[in-house]
Amino acid sequence: MSYLLHLATFFGIYAILGVSLNLLIGYTGLVWIAHAATFAVGAYAGALFATKLALNFFLAMLLAMLVAGILGSLTGWIFSRLGGDYYMLASVSWNYIVVSVLINWESLTNGPLGISGIPKPSLGELSFAEPTKFFLLTLVLLGIVYAAARFITNSSFGRVIKAIREDEQAAKVFGYNTLMYKVAISGMGAAMAGIAGVLLASYIGFVDPSSFDVMESIFILAIVVVGGFANIRGSLVGALALVLLPELLRFAGFPAEIAAHVRLGLYGLALILFMLYRPQGIIGEYKF
């Protein structure tokens, strides 16, 4: 049973990633294939604040959100002026640059060895080291992210980013500084992904660069695609489906050496089939 708890925690972390990426892709139309890099920035920032500076988990998390958010705004500012294809390719290259920096900036990130000994969250007497409590913490943070995303997308700000997605020129004509809106949503999405990163780092107790490659970005993209663009609840469904899929394969008795490849193939197939037959995802409202 505690394995279910473990999966549920992973579901929470990936649901946060899915929801935050949906803000970029689904609502604003920015095809960002570097969410794993943002995830990594959050995880590393959290890990470094918690180990090197010995900060409390929650303080480290706020700072990591800040770092991820600032970096997200910055890349948003640079890249989102570019057209769709360029933006997408720029994001892929950004993913590479981030992983390369994590591997090579050894004095800060400890290179390929990664950072181990990341503490579990605690608040005064209350420790979240125990899996149940950690999961509840993840659930609470997912709830906050979910509520924030709902609030953002239902606000007037949300209407503007949707207008940018539909027709950026028209939004400009109406006097909106569309670049600033894109920078803002990039920052917010990144800060939320930062939370997921810190949770992962603390949950596993270890981070290394190998977990954050482009394939991981494609995985997070698949969560959004399966769940549905511009549908926050959909991303929860997508995260649930894709976190459970490998377990189904595992328990279905695929040998481990094949299962990993089958998994990748199924993600790919899901992307193709959803784009062809159901671009709005399982419960999405918006046809991309």
Partner: peptide, 15 residues
């Protein structure tokens, strides 16, 4: 849209 093509092509790549 172009984005749909790109995402589908990523799917083909993975497959």
């Amino acid at each position: 849209r172009a984005s749909v093509f790109v995402i589908a092509s990523l799917g083909i790549f993975a497959l």
